[in-house]
Structure formats: structure tokens, C-alpha cells
Amino acid sequence: MANPIFREKLQAGTFFVVPGIQDMIAAVIANKVGFDIVYGTGYWLTASAWGLPDAGIATYTEMRNRMETLARTSNAAVIADGDTGYGGLLNVHHTVKGYEASGVTAIQLEDQEFPKKCGHTPYKRLIPAEDMVEKIRVAVDARSSEDFVIIARTDARESEGLDGALRRMEAYAKAGADVLFPEALHSEEEMRKACSVLDRPCMANMSNHGKTPVPPAAVLAEIGYAYAIYPSLTSLAAAAAMEKALLDLKQQGIGQPDGLFDFTEFCHLIGFPEVWEFEKKWALAK
């Protein structure tokens, strides 16, 4: 069941931030911090599960399973990266139905050819705007709940320029998209123009070291975005911390460095108290 909090936040018009979640460790840490919306990132969930690039290699079934696991683990509403819908119109229909049944609250669909590429990497190829319009219409028709949000993304900035990307966004809005996602804009000036001319809520993709600047949240709010996702933040922070710990172990033999997360607390975050209560109950029942 889609969580109404996402649509409520969009209607309230107050800017908010959404962290990307690459695995269930990140999910339980986000639970602790207290985010009420998180982003199931295709790039980083694929990297963490299979060690593969975000290039359309992971299948719909595999990604649905990952999103379902995230929706179960997270206390927050989940925005799910649905790539291209994994094929044509029938695939989009089944992807929307499947993701909604998996417990996510929103799906993001993009106008690349299948298989897709990460939006901040080269060699992206787009489908005609008319074909993406049909995908959005199918997606809107496929959802069961009005609380389930359809996000339309375009990767046209690189090949068609900003004006071409905005024309696509306008067409996708008319097709029924609830949120517009002009990917990989190159400057704050472009970001301001997109937010000023588009009449649906716009989201920003704050991909660290990608093509788009990453200004503070207050600046994004002033520009006019409804919200921003930070898909790579936890992944790159975790990778840097792991590399440092492993180098310390290899080079200096340090296996107990300062700054580790408390193990007992993590046991509680991941659900061990319920296991211990079960063991206590049934051990005493014997």
C-alpha cells in the first residue's frame, strides 16, 4: 500500500531531502536518523547486491525483490527507481503493478532506450518523446492507489539540450506524471529555468561528482525544487570508510579502529531483540 506521506509533502510545498539507500544496513541507519521518505536507488542497489554497473543488466524481477526488501526493512515511504519500466508498454504496466504490490510509494520512469545507462555516464540513447508519453499514460492507468506517485525522468539534456529536455518534461506532465525529473542539468541557471517553466513539482538529483552541482538544500528550495534525492551519498561515504578501515588493517594491523558503529546498538537496529525474546519464550516452554 502506497504511503500517503509523499503526496502530502508534495502538496504542502515545503522542500525536503531524500537519502539514497543502497542496502539494508543503510536502511536501518536511516530508520534511526528518522527519515520519513527514502530513495531506492537503482545504481547503488545493483552495485551492492551484484557488484554490477547500472546498465540495465539487473532484471525487473531482481530489482522488484530488492525494492520489496527495502520497503519491508525501512520505516519510511520508498521512492523506487523503475528504470525504463524494463521494456515496452506491457512491461511498464507490470512494473508499476509489481512495484506497487511490493510496498513502494512511488516509481521513477525514464525515457532512455532499454537497456538504460546511469544518467551521469555517457552513451545514453533516448526513445522518442511520443513513446515515453505512452509509457506515462500506461503507468498512470496501472496504479491502484492515487497515493502511488508517478515520476517522469528525461535524460535529454545531453542530446537535445535544455530546451529539448523541457519540452519532453511538459509532454510527460500532460500525460499525467505527478513529478518531473530533468536529469543531469549542468548549472544552477539551468535548474532555475526548469523549475520556473514547468508546472509540476520538480525533483533534483544530487549525485555526488556527477554532472549537476550539489548546492545546499536551502539553495535548492530557493531555486524552486519540491525535493532532492541524494542517491550516492551513503554509498560513497561507506566506500570511503571501508577503504580506510581495510587499508589500516592491511598496512598497520589495526582491527579495532576508533569511530566504529556500536555493535550492540546495531544488533538492536537489525532486529535481534525480537529473536532473543522468541528464544527466551520457547526455551522456557520446554
Rank of each mutant, 00 (worst) to 15 (best):
P4H: 10
R7P: 02
R7Y: 05
K9P: 02
G13D: 06
F15N: 13
F15K: 11
P19R: 08
G20H: 10
D23M: 02
A26Q: 08
A27Q: 14
I29A: 13
A30R: 06
V33S: 05
G34L: 11
F35T: 10
G40I: 02
G42N: 01
L45E: 14
A49K: 07
G51C: 08
G51F: 00
L52Y: 01
P53H: 13
A58Y: 05
A58L: 04
A58I: 12
Y60V: 08
T61C: 01
M63Y: 02
M63S: 04
R66C: 03
T69C: 11
L70V: 04
A71T: 11
R72T: 11
R72Q: 15
T73K: 14
S74I: 03
I79T: 06
A80W: 11
G82L: 12
G85T: 08
G87H: 09
V92K: 15
H94Q: 14
G98M: 02
E100T: 09
E100I: 09
A101P: 07
S102W: 06
V104L: 02
V104N: 01
A106L: 04
Q108H: 15
E110P: 10
Q112R: 06
E113N: 08
K116D: 03
K116G: 06
T121G: 04
R125Y: 07
A129C: 14
E130A: 15
V133E: 02
E134I: 04
R137F: 04
V138E: 07
V138D: 02
D141L: 06
R143W: 04
R143P: 01
D147I: 03
I150N: 01
A152S: 13
T154L: 08
A156F: 07
R157M: 09
R157N: 11
E158Q: 13
S159F: 00
E160F: 10
R167F: 03
R168E: 03
M169L: 11
Y172R: 05
K174A: 10
K174G: 01
A177T: 04
D178M: 11
V179W: 06
E183K: 09
L185H: 05
E189Q: 14
E189W: 07
E190H: 12
R192L: 03
K193S: 03
A194Q: 10
S196E: 14
V197D: 00
R200W: 05
C202T: 12
A204Q: 04
N205V: 09
N205W: 06
N205I: 08
K211F: 06
P215D: 09
G224I: 09
G224L: 00
Y225A: 09
Y225R: 12
Y227T: 08
Y227Q: 00
P231E: 03
P231V: 01
L236R: 15
A237I: 14
A238M: 13
A239S: 12
A240G: 08
A240H: 08
A241Q: 10
M242P: 00
E243S: 15
E243V: 14
A245W: 12
L246V: 08
L246E: 13
Q252H: 15
G253K: 04
G253A: 07
G253L: 10
I254H: 11
P257C: 06
D258F: 09
D258W: 11
L260I: 15
L260G: 11
F261P: 09
F261C: 12
F261T: 15
D262G: 05
E265K: 07
E265N: 07
C267R: 13
C267G: 08
C267Q: 12
P273T: 02
V275P: 00
K281Q: 12
K281W: 02
W282G: 02
A283F: 12
A283Q: 14
L284D: 15
A285G: 06
